[in-house]
Computed example of a mutant assay.
Amino acid sequence: MSEKALIHAVYLRDGADTGRHAAVAEGQIDEPIWLHFNVSQPNARAELKKAAPYIDDSMIDALCAEDTRPRVEEFEKEYLVILRGINLNPDEDPEDMVSLRIWSDGSHVISAQRRPVFAARKLAAKLRATDQPASSSEVIVGLTVNVIENMAIPISELMEEIDELELEMIDGGKPEHRTKLADLRHKVLLLRRYFNPLRAAVGLLKDLATTWLGEKYTRRLRNAHDDLTRHLEDLDAARDRLQFQQEELVTVMSDRLNRNMYMLSIVAAIFLPLGFLTGLFGINVGGMPGVEDGTAFWWVTGGCAVIAAGLAFFFRRSGWF
């Protein structure tokens, strides 16, 4: 049996300011209200249509879409806001961002999620605890601000990971650092993928807010947009730092490989003539000198040692090592 798609419903203040407290809605819900749905439930469309008959099918399609990108659309007196937030759900990757879809006609607010969005849960708890009823503007701006505020801690933790990796690489890059670098770059790129369109969407919402939401909420959106811009700048800086660390790691690994190949070349240069001598004295033909002499082996061995030492001294004087 499937669960209900409606997660919570909170009464809002209408234009006459009735002074009703924010509370969980019961009974009729066709008055000023905020409805929040889990549209991943099989019955979500039917339940949404029943609870909000004033919303048309095209808006329901947008709220229930499986994949979305951040954007803001205006339809006469209706508005559609789609946001992306960092995934704070347990055992999930923060960069696997969650989507929050919001529709409003200035009186009703319908929001939807396919996975839990902490921004909506946080705002619902706040509205239920306050002594004053909320307006639709407060819900829309509150959801947007919460989505952006929830980005601060994960991004700070990501920057700390980059700092730690940079400190580890000061003493020299290691092969395992390559995996860490790739993982961090992947996280940064995934976050930036949605942060750019999200900033554009919040910027457009901020511009519309002057006439739609009022000056008070415009200032809050302006501050939230500035915070989002700062987060994006941090990600840009993180991307550049990781790129530099990647280049530094490649340089260190290349230098280490070249040094090892250089030492092998010196060893090969020393033992090449020795290999020639031992090969020459190892041929099985008549007339080999010292075949009958019991000390010939030691003479050959000593000669090879002298030649090796002489070559090493020559390479050293020549500055090879």
Rank of each mutant, 00 (worst) to 15 (best):
R220V: 03
L228A: 02
D226I: 00
G290N: 07
A296P: 02
G302R: 01
Q245K: 07
Q246I: 10
D293C: 06
T251K: 02
I307R: 02
V291F: 08
L272D: 14
L311F: 15
T229G: 04
G275K: 05
L235A: 10
E247G: 13
A296N: 09
T278I: 15
R256M: 06
V267L: 14
L235W: 08
R230F: 06
V285I: 15
D240I: 02
R317A: 09
P273A: 14
H231F: 12
L264P: 09
R316C: 11
A308T: 02
V306N: 05
W298H: 12
V291R: 13
V267P: 01
W320M: 13
F315P: 09
W299H: 03
N260E: 01
R222A: 06
S265A: 15
L274K: 00
D240M: 05
Y262G: 05
R256S: 10
A309Y: 15
G286T: 13
W320E: 03
L264R: 02
E215N: 08
R316D: 13
A305F: 14
A237I: 15
W320K: 03
V291L: 08
T295D: 14
L235H: 06
E247F: 04
L311P: 01
G286K: 15
D236M: 09
V300M: 10
T251L: 10
N223Q: 14
E248H: 15
V285M: 10
R259W: 07
I266A: 09
G290L: 13
F297M: 11
G287A: 03
S254T: 11
L242C: 13
S265E: 00
A308W: 06
D293A: 06
T301D: 07
G279H: 11
D255E: 10
D227V: 08
T229Y: 01
L228Q: 01
D234H: 13
V250W: 06
M261R: 08
P273R: 12
F276W: 08
R222Q: 10
V285C: 03
D226N: 07
V306G: 04
N260H: 12
P273K: 11
S318T: 11
R222D: 01
T229K: 10
V267R: 01
G214L: 01
W320V: 11
N223I: 09
